[in-house]
Amino acid sequence: MAEPFETGVFGLSGELRQLGPYRLLAQLATGGMGVIYLGRDPASGRVAALKTLLAPGGVSAEARKRFDRETKLARRVTSRYTARILDCDVTAARPWMAMEYVPAPSLEALVVQRGPLTDERAVRWIGAGVAHALAELHGKEIVHRDIKPLNLLLTSEGPKVIDFGISHAGDLTSTRLTLGTVAFAAPEQADGQPSTPASDVYALGITLYYLACGRLPYPETREPLQQLNHVRRAATDLGGLPPGLSGVIQDCVAPRPEDRPTAEQLIRRFGPGSSAALPTAWSELIGWHAEEGRRLQRAVDQSEAETVTRSWIDGGPGWTRRVTEEEDGEAG
């Protein structure tokens, strides 16, 4: 992607240190409307990803209503390809939602840190998993609205779709435009029209192109409004795709929503794919995240959990620093 990318675990800022029974350990991500923390319940030892609202001036009634809507939508989804909802409290002074913590890198992190996928079987495996998640969402009349590599985590068992139910098409024309949001939107979303299941399919097509080629299928730009114009015109160039992926991805990014396949159709078209086709560098990064997640789960108390997460924060943005040090050592 054209814009700088950051991922990993970051130290806490501000005064917030607890949400419900969960004591916060670190910050995982920040978006235009909310922030996600890593937290642990000292009584049960449960580790969770905790989403709450960015509300420096207090939580408005409208923001609370939207957050309540998201939690209700999220609870309806039980796919193995989505993160489960564990608990929530939308009436708290700072409403929060506890989600299954998935110790896995995002597809964005994998592409940025490890390069694109060169084996179409791996792309098909990921595409089929995301299509399974979308099929359940769409079957329950839920539209994700923000499918992109940053919202897709990859475990050894397959992808996990996260952060659904709170984004709206109108967000694309707000002053909070970012390339990471606009670049994976569908043309109708860029026009301010309602999002539909076909919008998610378009976003999946752009995402899979990005995985396979390591770039976006649009003219390069660092200006969100220019990117919005490219998206609105569906000005895609799918050059560079493996021949076996060209047809299905081309269909996903058809300019007219009615010409795109459904998620159920995509499951059949992608086939099973193969996780064995993942490059070694991808598998190593996935494995490291999983092992670090197990280390956190094994923490006997809050102090040990804080020590584990502090080691991640001190080590820099996730896996990048560790790998750089190893490569420097080999070069020396």
Rank of each mutant, 00 (worst) to 15 (best):
V182E: 03
V182Y: 07
F184P: 00
E188R: 12
E188G: 08
Q189R: 02
A190Q: 07
A190W: 05
G192T: 04
Q193T: 01
P194C: 09
S195Y: 05
S195F: 04
V201N: 01
V201E: 05
A203G: 10
G205K: 09
G205F: 11
T207C: 01
L208I: 09
L208N: 10
Y209F: 15
Y210E: 07
L211S: 00
P217A: 11
Y218C: 03
P219F: 07
R222V: 13
P224T: 00
Q227L: 10
L228R: 09
N229G: 08
V231H: 02
R232W: 09
R232Q: 10
A234G: 06
L238Y: 03
G239M: 02
G240A: 14
P242L: 14
P243V: 10
G244D: 14
G244L: 04
L245Q: 00
S246T: 08
G247I: 09
G247N: 10
I249N: 06
Q250A: 15
Q250L: 04
Q250S: 15
D251V: 02
A254F: 05
A254W: 10
P255K: 06
P257A: 12
D259Y: 09
P261M: 13
T262H: 07
A263K: 03
E264M: 06
E264G: 02
Q265C: 01
Q265E: 15
L266R: 04
L266W: 02
I267E: 04
R269P: 00
S274R: 07
S274D: 03
S274H: 04
A276Y: 04
A276K: 12
A277K: 01
P279R: 02
P279S: 07
A281W: 00
S283D: 14
I286P: 03
G287V: 07
G287Q: 06
W288E: 13
W288A: 15
H289C: 15
L296C: 10
Q297R: 15
D301A: 15
Q302N: 07
Q302K: 01
E306P: 06
T307A: 14
V308K: 04
R310E: 09
D314H: 11
D314N: 11
P317A: 11
P317H: 12
G318V: 14
G318L: 11
W319S: 05
